[in-house]
């Protein structure tokens, strides 16, 4: 597709490889250092709608996938960046698409990828203090976590079921 060629021409070393999804959408794997530059270029080329950001955990490495759509050109394009699993950090694209704000927060919350330069990177769906990032493949599903009301009225995450108002444990995992 021509936008991928445009990106290749513009950023010679940014594109590591190109691929096609099963549904025919063209994608490219790019270096994470040039992510914001490439996104800025895409935005200027008319790709103004960031449809989705997904964080992926492939056990050996992590990925962030950006599905982008252009209202004017009516084209899809998919971007991928590969991250080191021990330190999954990538630049935020909020400066390009404001809509990335909550999507990046969600990715941070559920899969534990940190977005640098994000204006307000906090957990969004889970409460602060949640242990682990649930969508990682090594997330410990055997530990029950509860949200209780703390001394000052704020939410507190605990693994201690004895403080619950509901005393009985509903199900025994053993």
């Amino acid at each position: 597709m021509n936008i991928i060629n445009d990106v290749k021409n513009r950023f010679e070393h940014a594109v590591v490889e190109t691929y096609t999804q099963n549904d025919g959408k063209e994608g490219m794997l790019i270096k994470k250092e040039s992510l914001v530059d490439v996104c800025g270029f895409l935005y200027k080329s008319g790709f103004d709608h960031l449809s989705m950001i997904s964080g992926m955990d492939y056990v050996e490495w992590m990925e962030v996938v950006y599905h982008v759509w252009s209202y004017t050109r009516k084209e899809n394009v998919v971007l991928k960046v590969k991250l080191d699993r021990s330190m999954p950090v990538v630049d935020s694209v909020v400066s390009v698409w404001s809509g990335a704000d909550w999507m990046e927060r969600e990715t941070y919350d559920l899969i534990g990828i940190t977005f640098e330069n994000h204006p307000d990177l906090r957990r969004i769906l889970l409460p602060e203090g949640w242990i682990g990032h649930p969508l990682r493949k090594d997330y410990d599903l055997t530990v029950d976590q509860y949200v209780i009301i703390g001394e000052d009225g704020s939410d507190v995450v605990t693994t201690d079921a004895s403080k619950l108002l509901r005393k009985e444990v509903l199900h025994d995992r053993n």
Binding site: Q21, D23, K25, H67
Partner: peptide, 20 residues
């Protein structure tokens, strides 16, 4: 093996599923 992303016009807006 593979991946697909489909998005449709749901009543509330764009609803998409990305499946790997």
């Amino acid at each position: 093996r593979g991946e697909s992303y489909s998005r449709i016009e749901a009543p509330k807006g764009e609803l998409g599923f990305y499946i790997v």
